[in-house]
Design a protein around this nucleic acid. Sequence first.
DNA 1: AAGAATTTGTTCGTATGTATG
DNA 2: GCATACATACGAACAAATTCT
Lengths: 257, 257
Amino acid sequence: MGGPRFEPVRAVRAYERVVEQVEEAIESGVLVPGGRLPSERELMTQFSVSRSTVREALRVLQARGLVRSRPGDPHGAEVLPFSPAALHKSMTTLARVAELSLGELVQFRMVLDASAVLLAARLRTEEQLAEMYAAVAAMRAAAEADDAGGGTSEEAFGAADMAFHDAIARAGGNKLVQICTDVVRSIVVKLIADRIAGEPDRGSLMRRSIRHHEEVIAAVRAGDGPLAARLSRKAMYDYYAGYVEESERSALRALLE
Amino acid sequence: MGGPRFEPVRAVRAYERVVEQVEEAIESGVLVPGGRLPSERELMTQFSVSRSTVREALRVLQARGLVRSRPGDPHGAEVLPFSPAALHKSMTTLARVAELSLGELVQFRMVLDASAVLLAARLRTEEQLAEMYAAVAAMRAAAEADDAGGGTSEEAFGAADMAFHDAIARAGGNKLVQICTDVVRSIVVKLIADRIAGEPDRGSLMRRSIRHHEEVIAAVRAGDGPLAARLSRKAMYDYYAGYVEESERSALRALLE
DNA sequence: AAGAATTTGTTCGTATGTATG
DNA sequence: GCATACATACGAACAAATTCT
């Protein structure tokens, strides 16, 4: 009865086999970041494929952020250390093509940031706490420069804010949370950069944000995770709610309790 | 003073320009899912590049999950509807190359799932609630088939579990949470599939999981978001903690309160 | 139903600008 | 400065696959 249940064979292209083998070598550690691939001409002999096929494979590997090749480099393509660039790219297209709303992105950040501070309140070291203080100090400096009429203080403020959230995420100890926080943050910032810049009263927005951050740090320092998480969500909501569609704000408030 | 502040020009390859233009056309809606790109030969005339260059660009677009090309298709490459496949791929390599531990992945799921049920408790429709019940019923059926000695009931159980969490995530109303939940879930499952299969007492594990799911549904039905979130985290912890390194469990418990 | 036409997959050869030693 | 090897890009050609007549 039955006989062998054969499965349909999907025609797999030559360049895919090349990609698979190189990927395997990287993930298994045979190729390490900083190491080099053989030259294209050598790859075509090793894989017994044409130059074009090798190049198509390299393009795919490059798109996935695994290697980088430069013209004239005698050492061959370079194996890159991991970077969330590929993740960033796919999330960005996700945000556009799947029509992610600003509300959804902010909500995602509220969830991740809150969990990060919850963990950070337990796991943070003194050094990481110092980094958080330093970041808030930088935010304050940028805000004062802005009051004085400084032009590029916005990006300084943004950079300090990023440093703060990155320190939180690192202290939380979950690399995936850290990376996703960073990726989504940059997408959100890009989406509303122009609206932030045109804000009539940036100063008060910045000052309120700084105060919120200080409250979060205090809770983290005290080791009160749940409080830090609540404060973090509230800070995020206060800062971004004005840019979110009216109809989506209730979903954000659902996270505030 | 100063003069014009020129910016460094990075040498951009020909194929990248092609990728950019096609990407732009897709993201701006000029090209819609289901639509077709011109044939390779027509693209080379439109872009004034060789066919190799066109093909390298198509490979990159394909790697990003935007298009798909089949041999012999007279209509040209197909523009794909969004799929999280690219996101899935980059997260999977992230998990390997960045050495994400099982503990981090499970923790990530605890955070996302808990927030999804928190939102679902407020926003769910009757229909979505019915889907959750149906999923749990399917889990129970699979568990009983397993008791009777069924062979493929594991994957039936897993599929029902996925349907449950997907229903929750959809009810939560955040597509990004939904997608990330699904992606990370499949990675986790793949990591420990063999250990699950070799579990001596799968039956009790399944029954306990079903009971937990029922408790979560009850809380969602009652509209008690915080309770549902707590139960969800506990369910996830109970199910996966045994597979997580001893040293990482405390970080997971930190989310339980 | 079978063949013609077109398309993609793949190979090979060549020219050009570039980085290394 | 020069020789070498490299990646980039182009073009022509053939095989395999698909659709249309």
